[in-house]
Computed example of a mutant assay.
Amino acid sequence: MKTAKKASGWLERKTTTKKLTNGSNVTYPIVQGDRIADNPQHWYWVYRWEEKTGDAYSDNGYITRAIAIPQTKVEGVRLALSLGWSVEKITLLIRATSHCLKRDRPVPAPYS
């Protein structure tokens, strides 16, 4: 019997452009030189996933959910995605407080 693989979502990078009082536009986060696609410090990051729900507007019944990711957790989320972690485990990793992620303290294991 073949089991279906659960989708674990994807990462998206983004920037924000703001118009200053002098009329010029600034793109955040501010980067000196060219933006590097894989550099977590050069972007704002969002983790997105789809959920099947009865109140979705789409015909297929799925809605897309999203959660902002601190730049310090991007590499951890990338690793979790490559390992096929579930959405629940990845969101737990993202929402874990930063004091839990210090090197002198163990990182709590996501619930299975």
Rank of each mutant, 00 (worst) to 15 (best):
residue 1 M to I: 06
residue 2 K to A: 12
residue 3 T to A: 07
residue 3 T to Q: 13
residue 4 A to E: 08
residue 6 K to Q: 14
residue 6 K to E: 15
residue 7 A to S: 14
residue 9 G to E: 04
residue 9 G to Q: 05
residue 11 L to G: 01
residue 11 L to P: 02
residue 11 L to Y: 05
residue 15 T to G: 08
residue 16 T to H: 14
residue 17 T to C: 08
residue 18 K to E: 15
residue 20 L to Y: 00
residue 21 T to W: 13
residue 22 N to V: 13
residue 26 V to M: 14
residue 28 Y to G: 02
residue 28 Y to I: 06
residue 31 V to G: 01
residue 31 V to F: 00
residue 34 D to S: 07
residue 35 R to Q: 13
residue 35 R to S: 07
residue 35 R to T: 02
residue 35 R to D: 13
residue 37 A to M: 12
residue 38 D to H: 13
residue 41 Q to A: 07
residue 42 H to V: 11
residue 42 H to A: 08
residue 43 W to D: 05
residue 44 Y to I: 01
residue 44 Y to S: 01
residue 44 Y to C: 00
residue 46 V to L: 15
residue 46 V to C: 12
residue 47 Y to T: 11
residue 48 R to P: 09
residue 48 R to M: 03
residue 49 W to G: 07
residue 49 W to H: 09
residue 50 E to Y: 00
residue 51 E to Q: 14
residue 52 K to E: 10
residue 53 T to K: 10
residue 54 G to M: 11
residue 56 A to I: 05
residue 57 Y to Q: 05
residue 57 Y to C: 02
residue 58 S to N: 11
residue 59 D to I: 03
residue 61 G to M: 03
residue 62 Y to G: 03
residue 62 Y to F: 12
residue 63 I to T: 12
residue 64 T to K: 03
residue 64 T to D: 00
residue 64 T to Y: 03
residue 66 A to C: 08
residue 66 A to K: 15
residue 66 A to P: 01
residue 66 A to R: 15
residue 67 I to C: 06
residue 68 A to C: 06
residue 69 I to D: 08
residue 70 P to L: 10
residue 74 V to R: 13
residue 76 G to A: 09
residue 77 V to H: 15
residue 77 V to R: 13
residue 78 R to F: 02
residue 80 A to N: 06
residue 81 L to Y: 00
residue 82 S to T: 10
residue 82 S to V: 04
residue 82 S to D: 08
residue 84 G to E: 10
residue 85 W to Y: 14
residue 86 S to I: 05
residue 86 S to L: 10
residue 86 S to W: 02
residue 87 V to Y: 06
residue 88 E to I: 01
residue 89 K to S: 12
residue 89 K to Y: 03
residue 91 T to H: 03
residue 91 T to R: 12
residue 92 L to E: 15
residue 92 L to T: 15
residue 92 L to D: 15
residue 93 L to H: 15
residue 95 R to D: 14
residue 97 T to F: 00
residue 97 T to I: 02
residue 99 H to G: 01
residue 99 H to I: 09
residue 100 C to W: 07
residue 100 C to S: 14
residue 101 L to M: 12
residue 102 K to D: 11
residue 102 K to N: 07
residue 107 V to Q: 01
residue 110 P to K: 05
residue 110 P to T: 04
residue 111 Y to S: 12
